[in-house]
């Protein structure tokens, strides 16, 4: 199944005002992998994510999503296979009700009414918020909003899930629920995050970005133990890997 892969080769991008976003990013993500994308603010995570759905196009380098090379001609096919969950669910949930929002994508794909209904119900059930169907988005809690935002993407049955800070502004329980949910997904996942504990829980692989470049790419557990690398990238060891402050013995890694 080659269509779940993501392959970037030497991506460069500079914003119109001259700010450089990416300077030669390359990686290969194969089918079913879960990859955390970490790095300090302004490292280029969001810029990279916006390339993955063709919203920005690289000034140099190529990006292959599944069977398609990302070109304007293939844009729709690529957007169909990449489901993107944005950082702020308020930007993603723009329709009057949860149902309308989740149905927005499938309707744009041109599905029949019955299929749309099925897709919506299934997506909402998967994330466990089927009871919210008729509610307007502004009446949801932060955790519910996030779940619905994920459902809007799942309803289009993408091959690859791309998420920007999925655990930000969630309370601990909602965060835990989300992590468990993410673990159940079979999709290829690319998750940009500052939540390194979540990265440790969900992603076996981590790519570190620093100033628009990949500075490390490997097993999450190994990368998050590399103090030097973490310090250079303005990151810090996840709590699960730190010494317990109460008894000062190393806690057992969670994985």
């Amino acid at each position: 199944m080659s269509h779940h892969i993501v392959e970037a080769a030497d991506l460069h991008y500079a914003y119109p005002d001259g700010t450089v976003g990416l300077r030669g990013v390359s990686f290969h993500i194969s089918h079913g992998e879960s990859v955390a994308l970490v790095g300090e603010n302004g490292a280029g995570k969001s810029t990279l994510l916006l390339h993955l759905n063709g919203y920005l196009s690289a000034s140099r380098g190529t990006l292959r999503i599944g069977d398609y090379l990302l070109t304007p001609k293939n844009l729709n096919a690529v957007r169909r296979s990449v489901g993107m969950v944005f950082q702020n669910p308020d930007d993603q949930l723009f329709m009057p009700t949860v149902f309308d929002d989740v149905a927005f994508g499938p309707l744009n794909l041109g599905l029949e009414k019955q299929e749309v209904l099925r897709a919506v119900t299934q997506a909402l059930e998967t994330v466990g918020v089927a009871h919210l169907t008729k509610r307007p988005p502004y009446k949801l809690s932060q955790g519910e909003k996030r779940s619905v935002a994920i459902a809007t993407v799942l309803a289009m049955s993408p091959d690859i899930l791309v998420m920007d800070e999925p655990t930000s502004s969630l309370d601990p329980r909602s965060r835990r629920r989300l992590i468990e949910l993410l673990k159940t997904f079979q999709h290829t996942k690319i998750i940009a995050t500052h939540d390194l504990d979540m990265a440790l829980d969900v992603c076996e692989r981590t790519v570190v970005l620093h100033c628009g470049q990949v500075t490390a790419d490997g097993k999450t557990k190994e990368i998050l133990q590399n103090e030097e690398l973490l310090r250079a990238s303005s990151l810090e060891r996840p709590l699960a890997m730190q010494r317990c402050p109460a008894c000062s013995t190393p806690k057992k890694p969670v994985v």
Binding site: F94, L107, N108
Partner: peptide
């Protein structure tokens, strides 16, 4: 940002509501 989110879900200038 909203426009971006809409594009990602196949927005083509028409809003469809069931």
């Amino acid at each position: 940002r909203i426009y971006r989110a809409m594009c990602c879900r196949g927005f083509d200038g028409h809003i469809r509501i069931i």
